[in-house]
């Protein structure tokens, strides 16, 4: 029997394990090793340079810009996306009359909110670069039509507006998914709790603050991790949409873009791997902190 169990477990685990080792762990290990070399990406050999690549990172002004921008993205994108996602999800469920019914047509809204999720990120970025076009774009066109021509701007070419413009696209493209995710979480809350809250005289905000939020906390936490990882990346949108890309003058540079440029345009795979390893640890730290931080108190709805 025992042999049979082993065999079964091995048969179930080993194929997955082998695939994981070959396609996930081995590239990681190679990246760690390459980050200590001067590999050019086209030579069959690489020289060991120790921590040299890591030392360079601090003096690379574009990389420093990238770290700053990713940090800003990390602060803003998850917070705004989750705030909007939670707001829309609770409105869909509880925004109706009496504070505990769905608004009319909430199913249709959910589908519409989910639309951006169906588009590839590159398509989203291309579409938004048309929207942001200073002369013929939808955004400036709408502002001018409303008589707000003074607010029309060169969105992606102004150092102060370019990063917020990128953030807006990231939020827009991901908020629909989180509306659906939070909706599912709110669906899981027993409706009696909301009824009790209403009977106790709780208003919309109080119900949200004291009933909804504590009970969807786990979902929000997962959302933070996902969005944090997305904010540390942001490569596709920046690469397609921004001036330069990564500009103007580093205003929208992100780590992924620096990495890509160093590896595939400058042929500095060793240095780029060092950026990748740094990014890996940043992402890992973020995930650990986000999951630890959420563990403090879990409310049981029993």
């Amino acid at each position: 029997m025992r042999h049979g169990r082993w065999r079964f477990l091995a048969g179930a685990l080993i194929p997955a394990l082998v695939l994981h080792v070959v396609f996930v762990l081995s590239p990681y290990a190679q990246a760690f090793y390459l980050s200590l070399t001067d590999w050019t990406g086209v030579a069959g050999e690489a020289h060991f340079v120790g921590a040299d690549n890591y030392r360079r990172l601090a003096g690379d002004s574009l990389f420093v810009d990238a770290v700053r921008n990713n940090a800003l993205l990390l602060v803003v994108v998850p917070l705004v996306t989750i705030a909007i996602g939670l707001f829309l999800a609770s409105m869909l469920h509880l925004g109706g009359r009496g504070g505990r019914r769905a608004v009319a047509g909430s199913g249709a809204y959910q589908i519409i909110y989910f639309f951006p999720q169906l588009l590839s990120l590159v398509v989203v970025a291309v579409l938004w670069s048309f929207v942001y076009n200073p002369n013929t774009g939808l955004l400036n066109g709408a502002l001018r039509a409303l008589g707000l021509g003074g607010m029309a701007a060169s969105w992606l070419a102004s150092p102060s507006l370019a990063l917020p413009a990128v953030m807006a696209v990231l939020v827009w493209s991901s908020v629909g998914f989180y509306v659906v995710l939070f909706s599912a979480a709110i669906d899981g809350i027993p409706v009696e709790l909301f009824e009790a809250a209403v009977l106790d005289g709780a208003g919309g905000w109080a119900t949200f603050r004291n009933v909804t939020l504590p009970l969807v906390r786990d979902t929000v936490q997962v959302a933070f991790v996902y969005l944090g990882i997305a904010a540390l990346d942001a490569f596709a949108v920046v690469q397609v949409m921004t001036v330069g890309p990564g500009g103007p003058d580093g205003a929208t540079e992100v780590i992924g873009l620096s990495l890509y440029r160093n590896a595939f345009q400058y042929g500095k795979f060793g240095y780029a791997s060092a950026m990748g390893v740094a990014l890996f640890f940043a992402t890992l730290t973020l995930a650990v902190f986000a999951l630890r931080g959420g563990r403090r108190s879990t409310v049981e709805a029993s």
């Binding site: 394990l17 082998v18 081995s26 290990a29 190679q30 069959g44 690489a46």
Partner: peptide, 16 residues
Amino acid sequence: AGAAVPLLSACVTGGS
């Protein structure tokens, strides 16, 4: 199984 990784890591720059 993970200890086999260093062997695999030779492959990127293996050709010479």
